[in-house]
Design a protein around this nucleic acid. Structure first.
Length: 685
DNA sequence: GCACTGACCGTTTTT
DNA sequence: CGGTCAGTGC
């Protein structure tokens, strides 16, 4: 990237007051603008503590924080507050949530915890024929919450039986959350919005803490986030939002492109600055990207200009099936690396769905190439980690019923299913928290004396360790707790393989290490603080966050995770109808395809030097091989709208006999682009 | 309390 | 095909 700021960038950096929208296309130096602007504000006399920067991911926040302090040197006594929406909201809620009837010590429930709640909420109301699965319910509730909809309104809006059922379950789910003194991820935002709406003084106080608000990736704001931004900035009006409507890919999570498209309506005096000079990609890649995104109709018109020379022609490769696809892509990568053209870290394989990387992982392992798979099963999704965290959560908050149920008989301690059932029945019938019912175990009819003692012992254990929290460092408490519960024996009992055992136990130690690291870095470490960090950290590994980024590995990730990153060599794989665009988007009405197109655009614009798009002519699904249809986006990238439309028409009726009978890749009327290289290997059955 | 078995079912993306 | 879950038999 050029050393100097270009005129548009300079304008954005130097406009210090009032609302401003920076429309920053892909690769136009957006992060640079934001950090230079923060530095400039401070140089011009704004106290760092009066600046709030908001991002969507922890990674973006960390990067912004680091770049800003590099610019300013290390001499600042204070830092600007740069955090994700969710951590910002946690901080506000810790101060204010008691007004909404939650304890200040509320727990944050993640997806796994939500499953338990959803299951309970659906118990006895799920009628056969209108089945709602826990996962569906969680998604539906999330959709409601990201649109600021609470149960009463959800019930009003419901049209189908399924919606009514979901609305009813939503009410129960929310009640259970409140009883447990917990909030889920969407509540973090929605409760903050509700506080701002319901309590003027809260809004005033929180807004008064800052004079400048900067928001990154504004195109991805959902309803509550949008309201929170407005609430925080309406007084000082020093709001700088940065984003690119062409990269809005979180519609399914409630993000509204309308927010960025209508910025002028909300802030009439807003200054709008366009960054259109792309420093990242070669001209050839950019030409493809510009052609593709032009197929979307509702957007801020802008055309990226390449500041780099044209570069190698992007390739489109088709292969017989997904195995050949992975073999060939990996072979290509191997030749890049052995040829000294690229290092592993210069290369990314991008895909639409999480089932796709499997084949590539296998090939990369076979080729002995180092790789990192981003996403997938997170460290914090592992069973042992969830167990340990559940113990810690119960220490902090005994009302956390989901965690309590998770650990009450783990490791086995003589409290069986029958005992749990009786306890739960009493809790429900008397409307009392489960934890308190544990203290009345001796009064429960039908409960075996052995179970009564076991429950008493379990209760004493938790009480004992909760007491220790006040006296001892968090990490010591955790370590002793793991020892006292004999969790290691549980692992050895559960897993027979010595390798398994060590791996699992290492994971447990990793949790303890994470607590240790937290204790070192936090000013005033508490167990609750650690649990907040964990909940907000999302999918990051705890200890080796740094090393992971520095590791010289090929990166595999979804298109969604790839936003904001760049690589010299990008392989965008699985360019097929049904995958990209995903069949769910094809089937749904409205503008779902536009979002898929933006997703493709994000993928293409990650590439700096060389872009390779691949597809498989047949793909294994549920053990059966099925022919595929090339993605319409391949044609659009080349500016062949006619063929794109033909493809779209075909894939709109993919179940039709004509569509499934035709062998893929040989159809008349869909001439192959020049760049397509045919794969010569035989199709496997 | 636990290991094993067979039926079922199906997949977007994630802070 | 592979993961999950309820049911069965020790």
């Amino acid at each position: 990237m050029a050393n100097e700021l270009n005129p548009a960038q300079r304008d954005a950096v130097n406009t210090l007051a009032g609302p401003m929208l920076v429309l920053a296309g892909a690769g136009t130096g957006k992060t640079r603008v934001v950090t230079f602007r923060i530095a400039n504000l401070i140089k011009n006399g704004t106290s760092p503590a009066r600046i709030l920067g908001v991002t969507f991911t922890n990674k973006a926040a960390a990067e912004m924080q680091q770049r800003a302090s590099e610019l300013l040197g290390k001499r600042l006594p204070e830092k600007p507050e740069i955090s994700t929406f969710h951590s910002l909201c946690v901080r506000i809620l810790r101060r204010q949530i008691t007004r909404l009837g939650y304890p200040a010590q509320f727990t944050i429930y993640d997806r796994g915890d939500q499953e338990g709640l959803a299951r309970a909420a659906l118990r006895d109301i799920n009628v056969p024929g209108a089945v709602l699965r826990p996962g569906d319910l969680i998604n539906q509730i999330s959709r409601w919450k990201t649109a600021s909809i609470r149960p009463p309104q959800a019930a009003q809006l419901a049209e189908s039986d399924k919606d009514h059922l979901a609305a009813m379950a939503y009410r129960r789910y929310q009640q259970a959350l409140k009883n447990a003194g917990a909030v889920d991820f969407d509540d973090l935002l929605l409760c903050t919005e509700e506080l701002f709406v319901g309590f003027k003084e809260v809004r005033r106080d929180e807004a008064a803490r800052f004079d400048h608000l900067l928001v990154d990736e504004y195109q991805d704001t959902n309803g509550p986030q949008y309201q929170i931004i407005k609430a925080l900035a309406s007084e000082h009006r020093n709001l700088c939002v940065v984003g690119d409507d062409d990269q809005s890919i979180y519609g399914w999570r409630g993000a509204e492109v309308a927010h960025i498209l209508g910025f002028r309506r909300d802030w009439p005096e807003a200054k709008i600055i366009r960054l259109e000079e792309n420093y990242r990609s070669s001209g050839a890649i950019l030409a493809l990207a510009n052609r593709l995104i032009a197929f979307n109709s509702h957007r801020h018109e802008k055309v990226l200009r390449a500041s780099r020379p044209v570069g190698p022609e992007p390739r489109m490769l088709q292969f017989a099936d997904e195995t050949v696809e992975s073999v060939r892509v990996v072979a290509d990568i191997a030749s890049l690396i052995t040829g000294g053209v690229a290092q592993p870290r210069d290369i990314a394989i991008l895909f639409r769905t999480n089932e796709q990387p499997r084949a590539f992982e296998m090939e990369l392992r076979r080729a002995k190439l180092p790789y990192t798979l981003i996403g997938g099963m997170s460290f914090y999704d592992r069973k042992e980690v969830r167990d340990i965290l559940a113990y810690l959560k119960v220490l902090v908050s005994p009302s956390d019923e989901i965690s309590l149920l998770r650990i009450i008989d783990k490791p086995a301690r003589g409290i069986g299913q029958k005992a749990i059932k009786l306890l739960l029945e009493r809790a429900v019938s008397r409307g009392r928290p489960l934890w308190e019912v544990l203290g009345e175990a001796d009064q429960i009819e039908g409960l075996a004396p052995t179970a009564v003692t076991a429950i008493a012992r379990f209760r004493a254990l938790v009480e004992d360790f909760r007491g220790r929290l006040a006296r001892d460092p968090v990490v010591n408490v955790a370590r002793d707790l793991i020892e006292r519960t004999n969790y290691r024996a549980e692992i050895e009992r559960l897993y027979k393989e010595p390798n398994d055992q060590t791996a699992r136990w290492n994971t447990v130690e990793e949790v303890v290490n994470a607590i240790g690291a937290y204790q070192k870095r936090a000013d005033k470490p508490t167990l609750g603080g650690f649990l907040d960090d964990v909940a907000l950290a999302g999918r990051d590994e705890p200890s080796d966050k740094e090393t992971k980024l520095k590791r010289n590995n090929i990166v595999l990730m979804t298109l969604h995770s790839a936003k904001g990153l760049e690589f010299p060599h990008v392989y965008l794989v699985g360019m097929e109808e049904g995958l990209l665009p995903h069949h769910r988007a094809v089937a749904s009405a409205g503008n779902a395809i536009d979002e898929e197109r933006r997703l493709c655009y994000v993928g293409v614009t990650r590439a700096q030097d060389r872009l390779t798009l691949t597809l498989a002519l047949s793909r294994l699904k549920w053990g059966k091989s099925r022919p595929t249809i090339p993605s319409r986006f391949l044609f659009e990238l080349l500016g062949k709208a006619e063929n794109a439309r033909a493809t779209a028409a075909r894939s709109a009726a993919p179940t039709g006999p004509a569509a499934s009978r035709k062998p893929a890749g040989r159809r008349a009327g869909a001439p192959k682009p020049k760049t397509v290289v045919k794969d010569r290997s035989r199709r496997t059955k």
